[in-house]
């Protein structure tokens, strides 16, 4: 490389590439870092937990190391009925969302309120924590901030789970992991576009709607409807159950794959599911030899399909 031309070329290369990196990496990151978490982002990041894709804590994307979203109707300390409150239960050992680890991600006002009023800095992964949201003012502006209920009210994760009924618990974090693992996002976007599109699929997301979420999994290749607000359009678990087991049961023209394997071995009553029999009977139904399709087995409460539907129900 003894040529002078190559020395000049190498320096020009560094300048060109460095310049393009500054414009395309440094500048946008400044704008994005200044964003403040919206209520949507707070909810999404706290039900999803630290990471919904691959992580060393959940290497096979089985829904490990994920929090629970619980609707509390009873005070976990006093056992007295109270006003309904949504809390996010991080059992001992569960990783916290990125915004608890680096509160700057919340954005300025929320960071201060969550640290000072919400005492999120005191949350310890080893002992677990229960988080909820509260409203507060910072420098004259109102924000939703995160409250570490374990510190402020003494609600330990075990206390909350003792008073919560199973139907009040959403495995939304594990469900989002199912969404990533099963590749739902290869056909369903999570991004209504800023054109007429949003009139069908709901409002497009805003700048602060993603803080601490990972992965965002927008999707780029739509072969089915957008799902960002699907829980608002259709909140029937029954419909979802039929649709996941075999989409052709509720929508004869659907090209969605069957997700019957997410039911696992057993149904809600602990009976072994006979998939071969079901499929044979379904073919009879499809060919007009049966009037009704075979009954879809009810899913077990710890089945992967329950996690996935729990998550879909949180997509408001």
């Amino acid at each position: 490389m003894a040529f002078r031309e190559y020395k000049i070329g190498a320096r020009m290369f560094a300048v060109c590439l460095g310049g393009s990196m500054i414009i395309t990496l440094l500048f946008p990151s400044i704008t994005v870092a200044k964003s403040t978490s919206s209520d949507v982002a707070l909810d999404k990041s706290f039900y999803a937990g630290h990471e919904s894709g691959f992580s060393l804590e959940d290497p096979f994307l089985l829904g490990w190391n994920k929090p629970l979203k619980v609707t509390l109707k009873v005070d976990p300390k006093t056992q007295q009925p109270m006003e309904q409150k949504t809390v996010y239960v991080y059992q001992p050992g569960t990783s916290f969302p990125a915004s608890i680890i680096h509160p700057r991600i919340f954005g300025k006002g929320i960071e201060e309120l969550s640290l000072q009023q919400g005492r999120v800095g005191e949350a310890k992964r080893e002992s677990g924590a229960v988080f909820g949201f509260a409203k507060g003012a910072f420098e004259g502006q109102e924000y939703s901030y995160v409250e570490n209920l374990t510190a402020t009210k003494g609600w330990a994760p075990a206390d909350v789970m003792r008073v919560a009924k199973d139907e009040d618990v959403l495995h939304a974090g594990a469900g989002k992991t199912m969404f990533v693992r099963e590749g739902c996002w290869w056909c369903h976007t999570m991004l209504p576009e800023e054109t007429q599109d949003w009139q069908v699929f709901g409002a497009p997301p805003m700048l602060g709607d993603f803080n601490a979420e990972s992965p965002t999994a927008f999707g780029s290749d739509r072969k089915g409807p957008d799902l960002l607000h699907v829980g608002s359009r259709n909140s029937s678990r029954e419909w979802m159950m039929l649709h996941f087991f075999n989409p052709r049961l509720v929508q004869p023209h659907s090209i969605m794959p069957r997700f019957d394997y997410l039911w696992g071995e057993k149904d809600a009553n602990g009976q072994k599911i006979d998939f071969d029999k079901w499929r044979a009977e379904y073919i009879e139904y499809r060919d007009g030899k049966r009037v009704n399709p075979p009954e879809v087995p009810a899913y077990g409460k710890d089945s992967e399909i329950r996690y996935l539907i729990d998550w879909i129900m949180s997509l408001k």
Binding site: T24, L25, S29, A98, I105, P215
Partner: peptide, 14 residues
């Protein structure tokens, strides 16, 4: 480095 949110989305497409 577990970067999240829009930074993650943007870097994915970057």
């Amino acid at each position: 480095f577990h970067l999240t949110g829009l930074t993650e989305a943007y870097l994915t497409w970057w």
